[in-house]
Design a protein around this nucleic acid. Structure first.
Lengths: 207, 207
DNA sequence: TTTAATCTGTGAACGTAAACACAAGTTGAA
DNA sequence: TTCAACTTGTGTTTACGTTCACAGATTAAA
């Protein structure tokens, strides 16, 4: 394959494909075709093949893809072949849900530290992790944590992000409904539930 | 303006612009330029002007946009000028967080019904809404509810979605980590936290 | 009234991604 | 060994979205 710029969209879709593959793997399926995968997600098979082709040739003509092999390769592309440690800031209701969320494991994520600024919460444990004072965030420097999850009120989000960047965090999942500014080398993904909900009514014919 | 197909991406960005406008409105700002708005989100001003232009001309050359007027117009475009009622299915930890989430209000959303299948939860109240048996979902037909929020385990998600569609729900916000099949007229947005997190490590140089 | 500064709205140019079509590889049956 | 059925990988075409550049509208100052 000649060199070609990899579309952001292709990278964006890989985790989706990976989820499907891991599900097939659970069902002990050995091989899967682009058609099967496509049906699973409601996309076109050529889209999937094209996306894979940016990263190499993983399949066998006439057969399809080895589920196990392909999922391993996608994990490698996404840098998910090694497990990642994450720090959670904000131990409120949302923080508790995130901590208890079972879905992180299949991607190899582990939340190993939790911080909050509420004195009543500091020292308590949720999901077997004791909540520490956010002013002691530098504690995470000893561990190899490269991801941060922000689940604090909007007004505190930017400050927390700044601190996380100082501590060497490379990627941030932000649940506060606001943009946060970080150096270019740090990747931020913001999840804004209300905004997502606000996208629905456009497609609903008004009553 | 000549007729032109409106890019999905433009629609997608409108709720973002709206959030910025509502924030400016809180600060009693009267007018705002595309440049100001753009700086706020880290995008280009011509992108914003172009996006608006698909829906009409809202600004004044030499002045900018009236914050209040523009936000009203965007709300109208997004069909957010009327408030929307939503039903929540799944009163677990995640459900409780969603119910308590303060961000829905500014877009005019209100969760007016909650369902679960756990007998221990049915009858209890959270946020002053009593949890009802999911088998009695048809109760919502009397109310004018057009949005559904799914916060149940993956295996139950499709079934819940089917029921919601039966009840006439037009849009679904799905927090289960799976695709759900619905008729074309129903719009679904799926939020998969783990998948979003899985998108980060690609951008992190491996250690 | 004139001029300079400001800012919007939009056609056109450009760049990127999706969709297509098919060559080439693989399998299994005849 | 041959042929038919199947599936991948990718160059090309088409569609779409972004960026650009500027005409035209507005304001404020001279």
């Amino acid at each position: 394959m000649r060199y070609r710029k990899i579309p952001d969209e292709a990278v964006w879709r890989l985790p989706m494909y990976l989820r499907g593959l891991l599900l097939s793997l659970e069902k002990s399926q050995e091989t899967i075709s682009s058609q099967e995968l496509a049906d699973f997600f409601g996309v076109h098979p050529w889209q999937i093949r094209k996306d894979f082709s940016y990263f190499g040739a993983f399949g066998t003509p006439g057969v399809g893809y080895k589920v196990k092999k392909l999922s391993t390769q996608i994990k490698k592309i996404l840098n998910l072949h090694v497990s990642h440690k994450a720090v959670l800031v904000g131990a409120g209701n949302l923080g508790a849900v995130i901590l208890a969320y079972p879905g992180f494991k299949i991607y190899g994520f582990e939340i190993t530290a939790v911080f909050d600024n509420n004195p009543q919460k500091i020292g308590q444990k949720i999901e077997n992790i004791s909540i520490k004072d956010v002013s002691k965030l530098s504690l995470i420097k000893r561990q190899k944590i490269d991801l941060g999850i922000i689940a604090v009120p909007r007004k505190a989000a930017q400050e927390v992000a700044d601190r996380l960047v100082e501590m060497g965090i490379k990627g941030i999942l932000n649940f506060s409904p606001c943009r946060i500014n970080v150096p270019k080398k740090v990747k931020v993904i913001t999840i804004d539930i209300a905004m997502d909900l606000a996208r629905l009514p456009y497609y609903i014919p008004s009553s």
